[in-house]
Design a protein around this nucleic acid. Sequence first.
RNA 1: GCCGCGUUGGUCAAGGGGUUAAGACGCAUCCCUUUCACGGAUGAAUCACGGGUUCGAUUCCCGUACGCGGUACCA
Length: 511
Amino acid sequence: MEKKIRVRFAPSPTGGLHLGGVRTVLYNYLFARQHGGQFILRIEDTDQSRYVPGAEEYIYETLKWCGLEPDESPLKGGPYGPYRQSERKQNYRQYAEQLVREGRAYYAFDTPDELDAMRMKFRTPENPSPQYDHRTRSAMRNGLTLPAAETERLLNEGVPHVIRIRIPEKETVHLRDMIRGDVRFETELLDDKVLLKADGMPTYHLAVVVDDYLMQISHAFRGEEWLPSAPVHILLWRYLFGEEKMPQWAHFPLILKPDGNGKLSKRDGARLGIPIYAMDWKDPATGESITGFRETGFLQVAFNNMLAMMGWNEGTAQELYSLEELIKSFSIERVHKAGAKFNYEKAKWFNHEWIRRLPEKELLPYVKKYFAEKGLAAVDERLLITVVGLVRERCSLIPDFYTQARFFFEAPTRWDLDAVRPKWNEQKAEFFKEFMDRMNRVTDWNAGNLEASFKELATEKNIKPGELQLPLRIMLVGEKMGPPVFEIAGRLGREETQKRIAKMLDAMGKS
RNA sequence: GCCGCGUUGGUCAAGGGGUUAAGACGCAUCCCUUUCACGGAUGAAUCACGGGUUCGAUUCCCGUACGCGGUACCA
């Protein structure tokens, strides 16, 4: 019988969630949904010193905004809880001690200073960072070098100590990665990683293996930065639970800086003026804040779509995918091996496309919320719907709706008079005065009728209608932008249109 | 330094022994539109380098270069 599909995302609450992190969530989520499996959120908070207040809540909020809510999490609970590693502390020690008993790990009593001294002592130009490994461990204070009675004594006296894995000397560890295929590591080059820290907390290495086992994780997907430590995890699986029970691994490529090289970092956001976190994040310690895609005006569907395409491609020309479509089409095997540079222009393009194709009812909440923030709270909902339809094509971010449509709700207070003046004359002023009057005769007020009336009068006056359209636009909008001008007047209504024409005519006369 | 992973236009990428080497973003020109966009058309621009293997290599193999990641009682 096939193993149940259970995948987990395991962030540490040490700050906001950047793009790479959210993409890992997305891929995990897609895989789980695609196979009818469970998506689990586990919080890796074993390093209490780095815990940032609010970071965990931020993670929940991000997942919620992205629509990627887990089936099991610290909030929801579930059959394999707790889902916060700090609350599972008591689980880990027994496994570490089991390894010691079986000769696969050992106690180490070296102080931080002693470790530094060792690294200094063995440092050479060829080896700038000496490891705690089979070459150096014999020179350290640990269960392998100390007499058994001495180790026992230190333990009994409660001397601070850690437990380190004892890496075998000459073995080749094979990782079968769903994306990269067979990756080999020589244990000769691996170091004796700490498994259990002096404070009794496990390191990531022990915790990930124990928790994946206890939570029956079937597939373990994470960022490429974990690839080098994969052999340690494989060894732990072999010693503790058996490699046959080990989840299948996949290591995702990194998301790189838009310019230059390197992993995308939070600094790049401020430097380049682009969002790199899903949502705004304010570091409570430093006060530093990073803008998010949500606040910049991205749609949930577009954000997910953009993220999914950074590192995965179905092999067709299709680029636009809803979450549902992604669930159908996604496959781990088609995730790239190489990292991708983040391209903000393309990200905006995705958003633009989704703004154009999303049903109005789904778009409206975004627009309403933004309008409210800008002090345009009490807008006529029906007008808003038609206006959204009218301007959506020219908006790529939600705030664009405000610049593109605010004039439907507020009369302009300033006009781009320079655009009008050069060709302005008394005859045109006359035209508009008469046109205001003529408008009263338009029985069925709509764009088409209004345009007909406008052109009729222009012909009578012997003026090219085209020369009058720009001034009319400036009167209604204030600047050279927006949908076709008669469409605007049609939505504005007779009275408001007349008011705006009169107002600018007045301003024109004064200047 | 060592280990690991990568390398198709500026960017995201398809392809994978014989192709005019898809497509998208961005850029440029033109058309449409007497606004700004959308849209349409066209264009510039790519297989990191060197050796093999082969009738033939962008594709397979080996090197080199370059980039990235790791090398913590961080995750």
